[in-house]
Design a binder for these strands. Sequence first.
RNA 1: GCCGCCUUGGCUCAGUUGGUAGAGCGGCUGAUUCGUAAUCAGCAGAUCGUCAGUUCAAAUCUGACAGGCGGCUCCA
Length: 646
Amino acid sequence: MRASVEGNEVEVPAGATCADVLKAALSGKRFKAALACRLGGELLDLSVAWPTTFTGSATPVTADEPDGLVILRHSTSHIMAAAVKKLFPEARVAIGPAIDSGFYYDFGVARPFALDDLPAIEAAMRDIIKADLPFTRETMPKAKAARLFREQGEVYKAEIIEGLEGDAPVSLYRCGDFLDLCRGPHLPRTGMAGAFALLSVAGAYWRGDEKNPMLSRIYGTAFPDEKALKAHLDRLEEAKRRDHRKLGKELDLFSFHEDVAPGMSFWLPKGMLLRAILEDFLRREHLKRGYGLVQGPQILRKELWERSGHYDHYRENMYFTEIEGDVHGVKPMNCVGHMLMYGQHLHSYRDLPVRMFELGVVHRHEKSGVLHGLLRVRQFTQDDAHIICTPEQLEDEIIKVMHLSSDLMDLFGFEYKIFISTRPADSMGTDEGWERATNALIKAVEKEGKAYQINEGDGAFYGPKIDIKVMDAIGREWQLSTIQVDFTLPEAFDLVYVGPDGERHQPVMVHRAILGSLERFIGVLTEHYAGAFPTWLAPVQARILNVTDAQEDFVREARERLTALGIRVEADTRNEKLGFKVREAQLAKVPYILVVGDKEVEEHGVNVRLRSGDNMGLRSLEDVAALIRADGDEPFKRGGMSYSFA
RNA sequence: GCCGCCUUGGCUCAGUUGGUAGAGCGGCUGAUUCGUAAUCAGCAGAUCGUCAGUUCAAAUCUGACAGGCGGCUCCA
């Protein structure tokens, strides 16, 4: 029979395997690198028979491409499971997929794995790799496979098989003594595994449901070679170095006092200054875009939360307090306040859209185990806004919000992904309302030509949403922007506008936050910049250092002068050697280090050293101020926005 | 909330098989006045997360609780 690989036609005997075909068509070296075979969109094991029905041209899959890396990691995960079964025969295997950063495998065990168990498992894995065992594929009718696993006590595998749709036989992979249910494909032999490392252990619910038993998960990673593995481990180290919790402490940005206020941040002067600059910028940007600034109260009576639906759908996450026998709820969201403010007047269609912006402080009682520095807290400030508009204006308003979001993400240099979340099980409103709202979101995103993914059932209880997620230093995704359409709350609060026909109509509401919360945003931003904030955001833009006590008076004078010129500057006149003070300023990531010795005093200037280590020589105070101001304005020129220093 | 690990001076961490605590950095004091990533010396500072228990004796062992870290579920 004839087969084609990368355009090369070859003649192979009938019944040939994919390996036979690749071997006939490729150079020896290239064939040796092949982990699997790609036919159209399908990946096949090298050991399976070449499908005679395939008419296209196949390609080999190698470890240096994404599909190959997935196979490598998936097989490494199976090798780990084989090692675990060897060392802990009573362990029950669940699932073991490849993930973005490596792989994991979940096991049902009486005693969960600890970090101390990993070296022995790694050693057993090395033995299996050294033995160069083949991964052999076999298929079996579903019922037989389920029975087989059940007899072996592998309840999780049996449950997976029994839950599979259709009657197609299932594929099993054997590696030494270890037999596992798996769709494949796998490496031909364990000897082809690359460099790997087991990294951590964790608990994980069976099938991700907290009602199910907790399994013991081992995380690991694998790469084609030691060099790539080391690069990955180095990246993890670098991520630890830029962890915002560590940098926040080192740079004196914020603190936590876990014993008295778990999940709530304290903003120190430097962090608060950075935050105030951001807040100031946000307020101006919203005013420019037609938003009104508003602010509502922190606690509101329970009746209001019952009316909004929060009492039914969000009570678990709310804080309550009783005042003179009346139960009050601390606001977990700002929307109800905004709706009351809208209802203060009877609005004409000519007034719409009404856009209300609030840096709203909200409290949500998050479970203790989920708190994480500034990225997941119980009290946070949203850059929240509600847009109340006519149904006809909805799409245009969503697009405007998306523009604001992309302008801001670009300004900070964030990569992001868009998700659209649909109706959850626990929700309010009608199917029609949900469909209309969801379609409006999809239409707006498509009109903007942005790629998106659908998150089924992940919407808020009152409406569907667009979520925008950015990556942090370790590649974790964090949700920042959210744009939510709401047809239900305007109804619950009897919001109306008078149309051109003189009749009252119900408006549509958009909830949105762009940075999400200032806490999370500053956390992500700190890691993003590794603490070296751009000049416009840096709480301290310049630090003046004297060489000896003789220049102390001039340093004071220079600091006052630069402050008057609008520069955020501080002085370090401690009796320390210059090298020591430069080092400290450098570690504090101050963008401009201004050194003053006798020469500078004489010339009435400062010697300018940049954060990069470059030296710009002696400059006048006016020049330095102009330089720093221009540097601070730079990102806005690129982003087409503007923000001038106060 | 669930699983695992952790909790020692302001910070980072040592503390061997249980015999009531150490270092570096930081702070303070003094000396030094020294041009671009760490000057030297001295001093102060911890009832070892909290509460019980075992023991002649607990930072070290046991339990409960509170926090933290890595995940899971959840989420801006």
